[in-house]
């Protein structure tokens, strides 16, 4: 549990290498998923967060084990950052029985109740009201746990955002609203879907503290998340963080990405959170090239092991599909 917010200098000296390693781990995992998708090992839909790793890592590393994470369909990074084992995530991508949702959820529904990771969710805005409910339960029990509700800026056009923001603020609940603003709701740019493009203004209108952060800078994200979490945990009511980020790849593997200017993508790539922090840490002598190379090797091994494990794992037996639907086993 992080009691005091760290400033950038402290973070650089202490936590930054671990954050960098986590970002690299998420990036390499997803890059491998692209290959596996092309090889039809992973089927269905695949939404990558490449470019947005600083959000997943910066926010989720700031939470304590008792806190909850409610996520979106672009959640591989969130799940890995939360500590869902890579083997379980990879097997879930493969649709295998050893996956964290037994293969039933796939890429969009990674779930781990034990880690209080309440899932990816293919319904945009679907996780918002349940986040309010968990926070209400915590407030009623005088628990100081925080529920981090992560969503994209596209979800702010859904009614659920407004209902949930109102309820959380009205009842003064410990919800951290985390808006991962990658500027495109699938193919629709921010300004084409929101009348008020300053999202913090809209959140603040419900009476909660709201501010925007450079979502390409993991240290800035971490610093802001720690401050926001301390505020929420301390009984300050809900808080809203807008993390301005960008996805380098298309919305999904099916998306031809015709709605973005190549120059725009190139411009955002200049602030890729991984080389940015790597450069800073190398320059300051906090990490060495050798260390980064060691991490890369370890991560590559971890990914290969996860793939081997997923390949070897069985599918859920068809006869088991009636399990876990309701509390008693039912014949179909």
């Amino acid at each position: 549990m992080t009691a005091l917010a760290h400033d950038r200098e402290t973070l650089l000296a202490q936590g930054a290498p671990a954050l960098l390693r986590q970002m690299i781990r998420v990036r390499r995992f997803e890059e491998k998923c692209v290959e596996l998708y092309s090889a039809t090992k992973i089927r269905g839909f695949l939404h990558l967060c490449i470019g947005e790793e600083a959000v997943a890592v910066g926010v989720i590393s700031s939470l304590g084990p008792g806190d909850a994470v409610v996520s979106t369909y672009r959640e591989h990074g969130h799940a890995l950052a939360r500590g869902v084992p890579m083997n379980a995530v990879m097997a879930e991508m493969f649709g295998k029985a050893t996956g964290c949702s037994r293969g039933r959820g796939g890429s969009m529904h990674l779930f781990d109740a034990d880690l209080r990771f309440y899932g990816g969710n293919a319904i945009v805005g679907g996780g918002m009201p349940p986040s309010v409910g968990m926070a209400l339960a915590d407030r009623m029990n005088d628990r100081d746990d925080v529920t981090a509700c992560i969503f994209g800026e596209g979800a702010m056009a859904e009614g659920e955002f407004h209902e949930s923001a109102n309820l959380a603020a009205l009842w003064h609940l410990p919800v951290l609203f985390v808006c991962e603003n990658n500027r495109y709701a699938m193919g629709t740019a921010l300004a084409r879907e929101h009348a008020e493009t300053d999202l913090t203004v809209r959140a603040a209108s419900y009476g909660m503290v709201a501010w925007a952060v450079d979502g390409m800078d993991v240290l800035a994200v971490r610093e802001a998340a720690e401050r926001a979490i301390a505020l929420v945990r301390g009984g300050g009511g809900p808080c809203f963080l807008e993390l301005r980020t960008y996805r380098f790849r298309a919305h999904s593997m099916y998306d031809p990405d015709r709605y973005r200017d190549k120059a725009e993508i190139e411009r955002w790539r200049q602030s890729d959170p991984i080389p940015r922090l790597t450069g800073e840490l190398l320059a300051q002598g906090v990490v060495s090239d050798d260390e980064v190379a060691t991490w890369e090797g370890e991560i590559a091994q971890e990914i290969e092991a996860a793939i081997a494990s997923a390949e070897a794992a069985p599918l859920e037996p068809v006869s088991d599909l009636t399990r876990f639907v309701t509390s008693e086993r039912q014949t179909p």
């Binding site: 009201p129 309010v132 339960a137 209902e163």
Partner: peptide
């Protein structure tokens, strides 16, 4: 007593149930 927000209310009840209540 809740505001007029059926999706919000049912969704909130999900969260309550996840935390051990029986809403």
């Amino acid at each position: 007593d809740t505001p007029l927000a059926e999706a919000g209310i049912v969704g909130t009840a999900i969260g309550m149930a996840l935390r051990g209540y029986r809403p």
